[in-house]
C-alpha cells in the first residue's frame, strides 16, 4: 500500500513542480524534509524512550493483566453471545487495555490471538455444538462473525488515552502547549468509540449472526 502512496506523492509532486516551474523549490523542499526528519527523530528518541520506559514498568508489574481482569462488564455488554469462559474474552481484554495504554506492540499479538479464538468459536458453532438449539443459522466459512465485526470496529475506533507521539511532534514544531491536546483527544476518542459501540449494538439487534 505504502509503495503506491509514496510513489504517487513523489511522481505527482515532481510532475506538478515541473509544469509550474518550481523545480528549484522542489530540490530545496527535499533537502529540508530530510533535515527535518533528523531533528524530529532526535526529539522522538527522547520522548518515546521515556514513555516506553514508564509503560514497561506497567507491563512488567502486571498492570495490563490487572486492568484486563476488570473489563468483564464491558465485554459482557459488547459481546453478549460470547460464552462466559471462552479464551477469546481474555485476548480481547488484553488487546483493548494495551490499546488504551498505547502499548501497540502488546496490542497486536493479543488482537490476532483473539481473532484466531473467535474463528475457532465460529467453527464450533458451525459444528452445531452451542447455538443450533437457539435456532441460529450455521456460519459461512470465510465470513466475519458478529464478534469479529464488533471487536474490529471498536479496535479501529481508536482507544488510546495519551497520544504521546503527537505531543512530541507538536513540541518539535514549537507548540506553546504540546500536551494541551490530551483532554480534547480523549474527548474525540470517546466520541468515535461511542459511535462504534452504538453502531455495533444496533447491528447486533438483528437475529442474523
Amino acid at each position: 500500500m505504502l509503495n503506491y502512496i509514496w510513489a504517487f506523492m513523489i511522481m505527482i509532486g515532481i510532475l506538478w513542480a515541473i509544469i509550474h516551474g518550481r523545480a528549484a523549490a522542489l530540490t530545496q523542499g527535499l533537502l529540508d524534509s530530510a533535515a527535518d526528519a533528523v531533528s524530529l527523530c532526535i526529539t522522538m528518541l527522547g520522548v518515546v524512550s521515556m514513555w516506553s520506559g514508564i509503560l514497561k514498568i506497567g507491563e512488567r508489574s502486571g498492570l495490563v493483566d490487572r486492568l484486563a481482569g476488570r473489563m468483564e462488564p464491558v465485554l459482557h455488554f459488547l459481546f453478549p453471545d460470547l460464552p462466559r469462559e471462552h479464551p477469546a474474552r481474555r485476548s480481547i481484554a488484553v488487546n483493548m487495555i494495551a490499546n488504551i495504554l498505547g502499548l501497540g506492540w502488546a496490542a497486536t499479538p493479543a488482537g490476532l490471538q483473539a481473532m484466531k479464538e473467535l474463528k475457532e468459536l465460529e467453527e464450533e458453532r458451525g459444528a452445531g455444538k452451542s447455538v443450533a438449539a437457539r435456532g441460529m443459522p450455521a456460519p459461512l466459512p470465510g465470513t466475519a462473525s458478529r464478534e469479529m465485526c464488533t471487536f474490529l470496529i471498536i479496535n479501529i475506533s481508536s482507544l488510546q488515552l495519551i497520544p504521546v507521539n503527537m505531543i512530541a511532534y507538536r513540541g518539535q514544531y514549537g507548540s506553546a502547549a504540546p500536551a494541551a491536546i490530551v483532554g480534547p483527544a480523549i474527548a474525540a476518542t470517546a466520541v468515535s468509540t461511542l459511535t462504534a459501540v452504538l453502531f455495533c449494538r444496533f447491528m447486533c439487534r438483528g437475529g442474523r449472526r
Partner: peptide, 30 residues
C-alpha cells in the same frame, strides 16, 4: 523499556524520512 523505545524510533527513522520527503515534494511543488 527506554532501550526498546529508542530502538523503535531508530527503526522508523528511514520510514519517516521517506514519507516526510514525499510530503515535502508535494508541498514544495504547490
Amino acid at each position: 523499556g527506554a532501550k526498546e523505545g529508542a530502538r523503535t524510533v531508530l527503526r522508523v527513522f528511514p520510514t519517516l524520512t521517506g514519507l516526510m520527503a514525499g510530503v515535502g515534494v508535494l508541498r514544495a511543488s504547490g
